[in-house]
Write a protein that binds this DNA or RNA. Structure first.
Length: 233
DNA sequence: CCCCAGGCGTCCA
DNA sequence: TGGACGCATGGG
């Protein structure tokens, strides 16, 4: 594949910040569980607050055993108790329900390793069928926990690409995901890092109200010329 | 005081 | 199909 402008945008961010190493505990026992929980708990929530909730779960001994034991604890814990542990991550009543649904489903699928053996498309549909798991959460779990080659789209992705001249403003989630995947080499590693880099760029520089473009690594990315725009569309 | 954070389900036109 | 709204804590 010819190096796309989108790939060059990734390379610019990667050159500035290097690998982000999201969810680096991937080799540990409860890695899949922690990643899946993190994906749910971080919905519209600062990661700092997610870490507090995860720390609560560990302190309470919920995460300190085998995966199946941890899942059973989550699935059977009294609602009020789980809500209290999840409180710092916000929306804690909704998230307690969502975490329980996720844990029950993982148990029903025979644990994460067996569950994630499903083909990519089936796994996405299966995740989306869960209450409280929408497209971004489903794809985050598919990519970061299951290692599927699915690009994770979020609000930053759309904002940053749009501001840099990519014709994505009117696209919904699926259209934008297809647009991006069609313009990048199909690589789990690349998808993993690019999404994390976009989140960092959005967090620090490409904010909705007060973008600080002067110090952003993407400041040299001018809008597409008309010719480039036609080719890219 | 305000806005924002690694969204989603529901309701309504 | 798409836009408003509630959900809730913690930081800047």
């Amino acid at each position: 594949m010819r190096r796309s402008r989108l790939l060059r945008l990734h390379e610019t961010l990667y050159a500035a910040w290097g690998p982000q190493r999201w969810w680096p505990r991937a080799s540990e026992t409860n890695a899949a569980l922690e990643i899946a929980l993190g994906a749910v708990l971080t919905q519209n929530t600062a990661w700092r607050n997610v870490e507090r909730a995860l720390a609560n779960l560990r302190r309470a001994g919920v995460m300190n055993e085998s995966e199946s034991a941890s899942l059973r604890r989550l699935a059977s814990m009294p609602a009020r108790r789980l809500e209290a542990l999840l409180r710092p991550s916000g929306y804690f009543r909704q998230k307690a329900t969502r975490v329980r649904a996720l844990a029950r489903h993982a148990l029903a699928r025979g644990g994460f390793a067996a569950w994630f053996r499903m083909p990519k498309a089936n796994l996405r549909r299966d995740l989306l069928s869960l209450h409280g798991v929408g497209p971004e959460t489903a794809d985050s779990i598919a990519l970061y926990a299951a290692g599927k080659d699915v690009f994770v789209v979020d609000a930053y992705t759309k904002r940053i690409l749009s501001r840099h001249g990519f014709p994505v403003a009117a696209m919904g989630y699926e259209a934008l995901r297809a647009y991006i995947e069609a313009r990048l080499p199909r690589s789990v590693r690349l998808y993993n890092e690019f999404h994390a880099l976009l989140v960092r760029a959005g967090n620090r520089w490409c904010k909705r109200r007060r973008p600080k473009c002067s110090a952003c690594p993407l400041r040299s990315f001018r809008p597409l010329t008309l010719e480039e725009g036609v080719e890219a569309a």
